[in-house]
Design a protein around this nucleic acid. Structure first.
Lengths: 351, 351
DNA sequence: GCAAGTAATGTAAGCGCTTGCATTACACGT
DNA sequence: ACGTGTAATGCAAGCGCTTACATTACTTGC
């Protein structure tokens, strides 16, 4: 019996992955039928289908990704570009995103941009080049040519970690400004008038800048000059948070409340407060933002803003899945973020 | 002037990505030359090369990933399968891994297995199917058919987060057993005799089981019956750590030292201790493992084992890069993990 | 000035899959 | 028994790239 001798000849170095053709031969059908069996089972007769699937199983066939992408012009791969993998900020949302994708048979590609616009653009182009069918992006702030590129290529994307109604781009997230304003009002209502903010770079980061504006909104609303808000910008690590807090505590007048742009910076501030023998919240109040795990772990537990991590991730996946099938959502969706009162915020100390 | 009218006809829906052929036409050369220009510049005359690169630039050409993968049989993509993205345990190492890959022009695909062997196998096959040139794996414990599969397909892989000399498989990491033994000896030398362990599932997890054995090694060495080690297994979350600690504190005799398989569980234990008004380390000592960020943040700061996250990530990348180019490393590499003494471990209380 | 070697480029055959269209098989009504 | 409609299948043309091999253009030594 002769058996595709040419093919057998070609591969010698290792056990070759079986191809569609191998499956077809074994099942006694054409490659077209096998392909349909896998992608469009309803178009194949039941008995044939069973025969084919049997062959697939015994051969351990798995489609060649490149070939499939090339022929079908889709990869069943979505991409996500997040600012950092170093800390847990985006982890939970990403996990939810990926779970939802997996449930729909699509694979996730993750890239991190290290909060650098140039790198982010490069990553976006890279992911599109490697066939990402859709993209998850964090925040709105990026160069217009990036959006042009995406629109030209008709790559669906959603923006998350923020919600802005007026944007034509679809987003799913919460209103950073409103959420921070809410927290700030709480702070102010406890008598704090000397307020400071430790934040990560606001340039190219709409989340950070909106949070800052939220505080100023609250101040204005309560008759405090928003210009009086002392702001320290520093990259996103615990020790930077600590340093920023230290410098703030040396200023005069000393703030009675130090709001932080995120929990990581707040944790650093808390650490430093302890080192300086300052009682929190007795001597100074500290708040965070994001409500990641560490917020509950630090002492005192951090008053912060809880963010709908998993809802954003899952929701973004749903949106993207829909968009890939041609259902363009008509509007962005706003999720709720809410203040979580724990122990690090208290009344302003009497002078 | 006629210009490939057929091609223009084919695409209408959106701006098509320029193809190799477009570049070739524009530069007045064949596609082969363009391809060589991009992948093997030395084989092309300087003047031609410049002309081609110019065309690439103005057209904004980027290679089609699928086509490239199909034709070249490599994707310049490495995969990593980690047990979880939910907490920071693997984040730092992964970040280092990806930075090193990026520096070498290769893209990282990340999948998480949720500590489930079946899911992990599926993810591995998935990543290979989509053309991963090499794989980063955590720990040795997995079904033999997985290794067979990888070997058959000649997919290079390295195991990390563990080091075992006797294994034929290449690994880069540290000796979990030795590291934990070292910590346990410290604990014992402080007078603790009643020791307990809170660990994640040890089945299918060699890191967890080796750490456990390390404690027992130390006990045996100091004349304590290793069977006396009380062990609670529980999944990997803060609240589980807290619950496990609570149940341990109810047992009789109460342990004076609770070692935890990782910092997350330890953080939970610490939290619970505070809730129960137990002084740490006055009433009970608690230790962690991994030295992730939270270890420094909790109160008291956690005595734990520092793990060479970034070295493992970067080293794994290097190894894999080499293997792809045919340099099979001859042996695994052992990195150092060391005990970090902070505040959560103290002398055993006098009975 | 010519053969011979080398460097630069072109030609074209796939890589493994999807899918529009053509073909075949089959059930049914008449 | 025959045409007709529909369901099932096969055929074959690409998808955009890489690369072995063929071809052409130059050098260079004699």
């Amino acid at each position: 019996m002769e058996k595709q001798p040419d093919r057998a000849e070609k591969y010698r170095r290792s056990v070759p992955s079986p191809t569609l053709e191998d499956v077809a031969t074994r099942a006694g059908v054409s490659t077209a039928t096998v392909s349909r069996c896998l992608n469009n089972p309803s178009k194949v007769a039941k008995t044939t289908r069973e025969r084919v699937l049997e062959a697939v199983r015994t051969l351990g066939y798995a489609p060649n990704f490149g070939a499939q992408a090339l022929a079908a012009k889709r990869t069943n791969t979505f991409g996500a570009i997040i600012p950092t993998m170093e800390n847990a900020i985006f982890a939970r949302g990403l996990q939810a995103f990926q779970e939802e994708l997996q449930r729909n048979g699509i694979t996730l590609l993750v890239a991190s941009s290290s909060y650098t616009p140039e790198l982010e653009e490069q990553q976006i182009r890279g992911l599109v080049a490697r066939g990402a069918d859709a993209l998850l992006l964090i925040g709105h702030a990026r160069a217009p040519q990036v959006y042009e590129f995406l629109d030209d290529r008709q790559v669906p994307y959603v923006i998350t970690w923020t919600y802005e109604d007026f944007q034509s781009r679809i987003s799913i997230g919460f209103d950073n400004r409103k959420a921070m304003k809410c927290l700030a009002e709480r702070v102010i209502s406890l008598g704090h008038r000397n307020i400071a903010l430790i934040t990560s770079q606001r340039k190219d980061n709409d989340r950070a800048s909106h949070r800052c504006e939220g505080i100023q909104d609250a101040m204005a609303l309560h008759g405090i000059d928003p210009e009086g808000l002392r702001i320290v910008e520093t990259p996103y690590t615990i020790s930077n948070g600590a340093d920023a807090f230290a410098s703030l505590m040396e200023s005069d007048p000393r703030p009675t409340a130090v709001l932080c742009g995120n929990d990581v910076l707040a944790a650093g501030a808390l650490l430093q407060a302890r080192k300086m023998n300052l009682d929190v919240p007795g001597d100074v109040s500290i708040t965070g933002f994001d409500d990641i795990e560490i917020a509950q772990i630090v002492t005192p537990a951090l008053t912060t803003v809880h963010v709908p991590h998993r809802e954003m991730g899952k929701g973004a996946a749903r949106l993207l899945l829909g968009m890939r099938n041609g259902q363009m959502p008509t509007s962005s969706t706003e999720l709720e973020a809410h203040v979580v009162l724990r122990d690090s915020l208290g009344p302003a100390p009497r002078m």
